[in-house]
Structures are given as C-alpha cells and as structure tokens.
Design a binder for these strands. Structure first.
Length: 288
DNA sequence: CATTTATCCTGTAAGC
DNA sequence: TGCTTACAGGATAAAT
C-alpha cells in the first residue's frame, strides 16, 4: 500500500521522466479516477492540454505536478494513489494495462504517463495551489521528511488527543505519510502498543515512536518502498523490497525478530494491527 | 466540538 | 470443482 516512502519513490520517478515536458492529449478511461475533479472529466482534459510540468512535489501520501512556473499560486495536477494506484511511464504504443484509468500524452511524442488503479480509491484532479500547496492538501499535516516538520509540536498534538496511539499516528491532520504498515513498524520499534491511550503517552515515548516512524520510512525509501502485495511499483514497474525487512506488519504467527515471540494479529478499525505480545505489552486500560 | 464508524472498490485466497 | 466469504485499507462523509 502506498505510504510516504512509496509515494516518494513515485515522485522521484515523475521528477526524472515528466518534469520539463509539455502535456498533449489526456484520455480518461474511467470516470471514477477523476471524480475529485469537480468541474468534470471534459474540464480535466481541457485544463491539461499544452501545460508544461515544472516540478514534482509531495506532502504525506499526496503527490502533485506544478502546471505553472510560479508554484505558489498556480495550478497543479494532484494525485493520490489510494490503495492500488500506480504511475507508469510507458511508450505510447504499449498495450493498455488491465486497470489503466488515465493516459497523459506529451507533445514531444515520447513516453506517456499512465495512471493505473485496480481498486479506484485513488485519483487525479487539477487543483489551485495556495501558498504552494493544492487546496485539498491544505489540511494535511507536514510529514516527517518535510524540512519544516516540528516533532515536538506533533508530540504535543498527539498527547492532546483522547484516543489510541495508532489512531493518532494514522491521522493525517496530526502527522502525514504514515499508513498501516509503517504505523505497526514504528510501534514495534518503539515497543509501544497500538491501543495505548495517547493521554498516557510521555513526551519521550511520543518522540520515540515518531523517530521510529521517520527511521523506518527512511529505510524503506532506500529500499525502493514496500511492495507487500505487488500492487505498488515505481514508474518503471519495479517492486520495492522493504517487505523483506518488516518486523511486525503482516508477520502474524512468525517470530518477533527481537525476542522470538509469535507476532499477533488483532482486529483494529476494520483492518489489522500486528504486535509482539512480549515487546509491546497491552496497556492496562487500552483504548478501543 | 472531538472522535468513531461506514463507505467506496476489486482481486486474491481461504473455507465449505 | 465451484461458489461464497473475508480481507487488503486511505480518506472522507456521516454518525455518535
């Protein structure tokens, strides 16, 4: 599932292959993939034709391409990969992928940009940027790799909440970029349980779990991301290999790399939470 | 207001 | 074998 490291790998690919090029015709093959473009499919296509891509940027799990030289107040092509979205660079004559949703051709006739998305939770839209950030991203907190990320402020924000620790880590308005995989890995590294009430979190524990999240996402980025179920690939179709380094996520029944105890899978918010029962003891009063 | 839950979607895999 | 069911889960609207 694309979280910060996977989206950053995609951003790097976009920076390499499409920045500096000028868009020609766009083709929307599935309306759901542009549903966030409120002015509709035709307007989406019309707004892209002839536009030059000036930069590829990211915040959390959102990635966008600047369509105006002045990035502080121009338009951008905003993308969210959702669960299964992929950005691929392909020759224009390459056969259509099974879940090809949007094709973006270029005026130079070179490789085109394709948005492929099996589950269609992701999508593209053209948005106005305000102070350099697309409007739908304005409420998304800075991520741990942002130079302006304020760790102590985020720890304070988490401790102000009245919820469970993992819920807070997944809340993109507190800190962005962390999804289910890296939340479980960060909690495992910090030896904290997902149901620990944020009210009982010390400042040191808060700093520890965020440092762990930053560390594990940095390592995952260096490995090209995590391709847990082969739905995540880079712009050239290659998988990342950080899944081999996961200690907790998806490891139910397997030995904890630290103490050998079997990793436990629990139900959490209609999904899963993986913990080591020994390294991450359940809090006395767990938050549901 | 703060917090939690249901919903969107499709392919894979497990269970009967 | 073939059908049904559970599961994967990011963001947000709706509910509490």
């Amino acid at each position: 599932m694309p979280e910060l490291p996977e989206v950053e790998v995609v951003r790097l690919g976009l920076a390499e292959y499409v920045v500096g090029r000028t868009l020609a015709a766009a083709e929307v093959r599935h309306p759901r993939s542009v549903r966030r473009h409120v002015a509709g499919e035709l307007d989406f296509v019309a707004r892209l034709a002839g536009r030059t891509i000036w930069a590829a940027r990211r915040r959390g799990k959102y990635v966008w391409l600047d369509l105006d030289a002045d990035c502080t107040c121009g338009e951008v092509l905003l993308a969210h990969l959702g669960m299964s979205g992929q950005m691929r660079i392909q020759p224009p004559d390459a056969p259509a992928e099974t879940h090809l949703r949007v094709r973006l051709g270029f005026a130079d006739g070179g490789p085109e940009l394709r948005f492929i998305d099996q589950r269609t939770f992701g999508g593209l839209s053209v948005e106005d940027a305000v102070a350099g950030v697309p409007a739908p991203v304005a409420h998304i907190a800075r991520d741990p790799m942002d130079p302006s990320f304020d760790l102590d402020a985020v720890v304070a924000g988490i401790r102000r909440r009245r919820t469970g620790l993992k819920r807070a880590l997944l809340d993109q308005t507190l800190v962005s970029g962390i999804g289910n995989i890296y939340a479980d890995e960060a909690l495992w590294r910090a030896r904290l349980h997902w149901a620990k009430p944020t009210a009982t979190l010390t400042r040191a524990q808060g700093r520890s779990v965020l440092a762990a999240a930053t560390e594990v996402m940095t390592e995952a980025l260096a490995a090209g991301g995590t391709s847990f179920d082969a739905l995540y690939v880079n712009v050239n179709g290659a998988s990342g290999y950080f899944d081999r380094s996961l200690a907790a996520y998806g490891q139910g029944g397997r030995a904890c790399p630290r103490c050998g105890t079997a990793i436990r899978r629990e139900s959490f918010m209609n999904r899963s939470a993986y913990t080591c029962p020994r390294c991450q003891p359940r809090p006395r009063h767990p938050h549901p």
